[in-house]
Design a protein around this nucleic acid. Structure first.
Lengths: 230, 230
DNA sequence: TCCTGTGAATTCGTTCACAGCC
DNA sequence: GGCTGTGAACGAATTCACAGGA
């Protein structure tokens, strides 16, 4: 019913299921089992069933889930039945790439404003929008009823820019800047960080190299303190 | 002290700590407590101490951690004391932005090859590198000893491209394509997905709106300032 | 028979709280 | 007195395993 607190981890997977379901619908599939959806989403079937059970009992025992119906339910749960106005802040390499990226409109995210502080960029036309000066953030956020900001500014100004966005009424921030941001309670924050991801990969990559050399008896002691006893 | 299986969740935080520590070092800080590092990294101090304890006992009771020493230890643990050769595959908007992004070299990730299938792009000079044709992936990966691939290709070809990368010897993939990829065991995979992140934000954003109306749209939270307007 | 929905069991991750050392 | 390092307690997330409906 109304009082179900869907676990964060489940929420984060719903978009993945949704995408898999949309693909299936496009290929003409009408019904899907938890097993099949699990395969498409790269998880196991128990997880699918648990996650979907948080939304309600939308499956049919012995049959599976109706693809279209499930798409509708997940979309609704994620708030994708309404349009969200988004602003992209910072139009460097990454901001420009994001602005040109088609993926926003795809599912109800409308880029409603582009903001930058650089006078050479302000006033320019980009993907059908005129770049506004960041000083106008308050007015723009209000006029366009923007609730989500995509931050693509240099790290050293990110916290300041974020504070001003929040002051202007933004309640969700997707941060691409390589900085840990602090936001007040009530404001949602997610981050996307290329170099953190690479460093995580590096960790596991190094492990592989280490294991490899152990297997080949060429282990170097420099990086791994091998457990001496027991 | 026994050979440590560092939990995944801890590994994912080490790069955040590292960045905070590097910032501190640049500002001339020599010693840091778990409390101070926690504040900078946006976590709590118990987590810092636990995470760091997986690496060893690098702190001093009553004092804290030596910043430089900790930077060194974390870097070593993450495998950042060596250089990793990276290839960027797919030079559309995003791939280009990534190629131009300075963040790679920052910490030992050298962009060693740019790959695409588009003949108009192959042969061009970009950030000091000649774009190679993806058909040469095998040769390029071997010659440059590349272990990490950054995938920025359209979703519908991502799995195929990924398979060929793995066949060519790639053992880590950072996927920017909006697709769930399957990789064989032994290959690490991480994904960065703009629209999934937006959808997660949408979920919580919707919750806020719902709560707001439950409160009759009157009760405003502290720093939040919502203008009904329209 | 088949496949969902879900309690129970388990694993993983976080936080507490304090002993131990500086 | 201050702060780390870590068992123990707690909580979240995952997986198991099976009852029950189509």
């Amino acid at each position: 019913m109304t009082s179900r607190p869907i676990p964060e981890a489940s929420v984060a997977r719903l978009p993945v299921y949704l995408r898999a379901l949309v693909d299936m619908a496009e290929r003409g599939t009408h019904t899907v089992s938890s097993e099949a959806l699990a395969a498409a989403a790269g998880v196991n079937s128990a997880k699918i069933r648990k996650d979907l059970s948080y939304l309600g009992s939308y499956g049919t025992r012995g049959v599976g889930y109706d693809v279209e119906y499930l798409i509708h339910q997940i979309s609704r749960e994620l708030g994708l039945t309404q349009d969200w106005a988004v602003t992209i802040v910072g139009l460097g390499n990454l901001g420009l790439a994001l602005a040109n990226y088609g993926g926003f409109a795809e599912r109800g995210f409308r880029v409603a404003a582009l903001l930058d502080v650089d006078d050479r960029k302000v006033g320019r036309q980009l993907v059908g929008l005129e770049v506004a000066h960041f000083d106008d953030v308050e007015r723009v956020v209000k006029e366009e009823e923007i609730s989500i900001a995509v931050l693509a500014v240099p790290g050293h100004v990110a916290q300041d820019v974020c504070d001003r966005l929040v002051a202007a009424g933004i309640t969700s921030v997707l941060n691409f800047a390589p900085t840990v941001l602090q936001v007040p309670p009530g404001v949602s924050l997610r981050k996307v960080d290329l170099s953190i991801e690479l460093q995580i990969l590096s960790f596991y990559e190094q492990r592989k190299v280490a294991e490899e050399s152990v297997r080949h008896g060429t282990a170097r002691r420099r990086l791994e303190q091998v457990d001496p006893g027991a």
